[in-house]
Write a protein that binds this DNA or RNA. Structure first.
Lengths: 238, 238
DNA sequence: GCCCTAGGGAGAGTCCTGCTCTCATTTGGC
DNA sequence: GCCAAATGAGAGCAGGACTCTCCCTAGGGC
């Protein structure tokens, strides 16, 4: 099944894109068409996520209609709705990681890069104000699916998160090397801990607290940074 | 509407229990029977959550069968599956809060209480090793539903979390008063931030990191405390 | 003890949605 | 131009939430 076509031979470090997996089902010359079709499904998916009101999942039929293709084609490229969601999730995370790379690259010191990462990632995880979404700002539906993955399909979830995790690990490593972060942060789950903290705080902390008025984005981001960087204690920790 | 039945009068003085709402649909003399029926549905729900393999939701029919009652009765007491889940979620959080109260009460200083809260809550949020669950250790299914609530039904989620939030706020307040925690932690979302950090770290950090082997519970809890209390920086935060 | 009504059990029926299958048509390579 | 593969159109199946109807039982009033 694995094709030797360049596009299918994924780069060493990062795992295969789900999108490419779907494309790879087709043969070589037809690849362009296939990519086009797959992409149209993905686009339709993102559009539906974007326009959906809070909490409402799209149906496969909607994706099919919107993409102007047929149910049959859909199931030719995707094993099921789950795989489409997975591909969308994949893309969303990649896109997030890419944008973070850009942001972080502008900073000069390890500390600044770490700070930048936290601030910007937080902002990206903040639910969109209008309730709408884009590839860069997935809706609640995506968040929900994220959970489904994290709980019921851990392996797939891990794979999808790789781009983000490796980026943060790199940033973190630098900081550890220069002594900016405290010792004891080298354990392998540090990156996951920080990511999940930021992500879920952005998404849910206000709801859990029962705070209704949306906080100021920048203020929230600053508080996030303080929390992540300095913790909650006043003096030296016991 | 609140019943004076001992079993219904539990812990915190928070909002109305979902279960009682359901019970209240019936008249007074029939209350005992009603409570019994509702409770049987709840019990069946918990049992099914406990025995379900990862990621598989129970069906209403299963709940009905297991409780030895009829579909008709189910819809007489619950407006839908959603409401049952909500009631279960409610109970689970209450139970968690109750147990935390007990734990925290054993400690003597504000600092110890804070520390105890973080450690114990973390452990409670840890997924059960065997994949099974109880009222005190909800399964992935419950976690997933938690997300559904947090995204699509924020008001209900906020209400459900009240017992936990108020408890932590109390503990936190003490610590602020005695100067144990740094200033700036009085903002109203602090409790939510800490809760979500602990909860989701326990549940997801290893998966996001791609760590497969389960960490030692106590070690994880200690790391969690360090992270929450001391943050990640080495020296004084900028 | 008897009747009468409300509550509850059994289970068929509806609707929605993910998913499969068939058949006819189109499309691209030769 | 021909053939095989790809695609579209749409009927059909399965499972699960929810509704409804029919009937039985139990419990209170007499």
């Amino acid at each position: 099944m694995p094709s030797d076509h360049p596009a299918a031979a994924s780069t060493t470090d990062a795992p295969v894109r789900r999108r490419d997996l779907a494309v790879a089902r087709s043969l070589d010359s037809a690849r362009v068409r296939s990519e086009g079709r797959v992409q149209r499904f993905l686009d339709a998916g993102f559009e539906l996520l974007a326009s959906a009101e809070s909490g409402k999942e799209f149906t496969v039929q909607e994706v099919v209609d919107r993409s102007g293709q047929s149910l049959r084609s859909f199931y030719q490229y995707f094993a099921g709705k789950h795989e489409l969601l997975l591909a969308l999730f994949d893309e969303a995370i990649r896109s997030t990681a890419d944008r973070l790379v850009e942001h972080v690259a502008r900073e000069t010191t390890p500390f600044d890069r770490l700070h930048c990462f936290v601030i910007e990632y937080y902002k990206m995880c903040l639910p969109a104000l209008n309730g709408h979404a884009s590839k860069n700002n997935p809706t609640p539906v995506m968040a929900e699916f994220c959970h489904q993955l994290l709980t019921a399909h851990q392996a797939e979830a891990s794979r999808a998160f790789v781009p983000l995790v490796t980026l943060l690990e790199k940033v973190l490593e630098e900081s550890v090397a220069t002594g900016v972060v405290r010792p004891g942060l080298e354990h392998e789950d540090a990156a996951g801990a920080i990511l999940s903290t930021i992500m879920f705080n952005a998404a849910y902390a206000p709801t859990i607290s029962g705070t209704s008025e949306p906080r100021d984005r920048d203020q929230g981001a600053d508080q996030m940074w303080e929390f992540v960087s300095a913790g909650i204690l006043a003096g030296s920790p016991t």
